[in-house]
């Protein structure tokens, strides 16, 4: 059982033109096994929350706390956060030329578990996970994210989610740029990780489409760096029908 607590979180993004405040006091608690959808219009701070949890150097926490099972996440380096059990599926996965997927995954798995995985077991797990995500076996010989299509990049993120078995995962617009088939395959992967590992999920999305495949327990609406509304799955249905206009008018 793991708990990620976000308390009164204020975050600024560091740009060449100076710092710009994005998050203005966010409170959220995510427990193992729970699925939280975070929705909101563009620029509301959804991705900023994702990057702040992972420790991206461009984002500065100016106030508030992030705790994982009571441990201060903000004191941890990026790799320490991952080893503590946090995972970020990125909206824009980065190309790493010359590093094969196979080498990358094995290095990451070794880092997370603290020891190299047993070869036979690892090869089996990898094969199963890839076949579940309908990925060709020669995929592992390619360089990380290099020349990947949008769908391949997202599947590769979910492949890592399934293999690295984190406690809490933040999925940053994993649904963007996916066709219906890819969306279904990727969602199945998230549901598997949720069921098999009792994963806690923070699902960041602009659209309700992915919520047809991944059923949220809670829905939070971000507007202008603050939580505008919270509710259950029914809130998502309302957003599907009404959009974000209501909140934008209120905040304007």
């Amino acid at each position: 059982m793991a708990t990620l607590e976000i308390k009164n979180l204020h975050v600024s993004v560091i740009t060449d033109q100076g710092n710009k405040q994005i998050l203005k006091g966010i409170d959220l608690t995510i427990r193992s096994g729970e699925i939280h959808a975070i929705m909101g219009p563009n620029g509301s701070g959804k991705s900023t929350l994702a990057y702040s949890i992972a420790g991206h150097p461009k984002y500065e926490v100016t106030e508030g706390e992030i705790l994982l099972d009571g441990e201060d996440v903000l004191e941890m380096s990026v790799d320490e956060r991952a080893r503590a059990g946090l995972f970020l599926a990125m909206q824009y996965p980065v190309e790493v030329p010359g590093v094969s997927v196979s080498n990358f995954l094995r290095t990451a798995k070794t880092a997370i578990s603290g020891e190299a995985p047993k070869l036979r077991e690892w090869v089996g797990d990898l094969k199963t996970a890839m076949s579940n995500l309908r990925m060709d076996s020669d995929f592992t010989e390619r360089n990380v994210n290099e020349g990947f299509s949008g769908g391949e990049k997202k599947r590769h993120e979910i492949l890592q989610l399934e293999l690295l078995k984190p406690k809490i995962a933040v999925l940053d617009e994993t649904d963007s740029g996916l066709d219906v088939d890819a969306l279904r395959i990727v969602s199945e992967g998230v549901n598997r990780a949720h069921k098999d590992n009792n994963l806690g999920v923070v699902l960041i999305t602009h659209y309700t489409r992915i919520l047809n495949y991944i059923k949220p327990d809670y829905v939070h609406v971000f507007v202008n760096g603050k939580l505008a509304e919270q509710g259950g799955a029914e809130l998502a249905e309302r957003l599907e029908n009404e959009g974000y206009d209501r909140y934008l008018k209120a905040s304007a």
Binding site: A54, G55, H56, P57, S77, V78, D79, R81, A82, R83, F87, L88, M90, P93, V94, E95, V96, P97, G98, V99, N103, F104, T107, A108, A111, I112, N143, Q160, L164
Partner: peptide
């Protein structure tokens, strides 16, 4: 690149080695 690798639990030194080796490997 470093952020991506470190976000998967890989420490900074190892991540840099991976990137350099990958860079020269081509």
């Amino acid at each position: 690149q470093l952020f991506y690798l470190m976000a998967r639990g890989i420490d900074e030194g190892t991540a840099k080695q991976l990137v350099v080796r990958g860079f020269l490997n081509e």
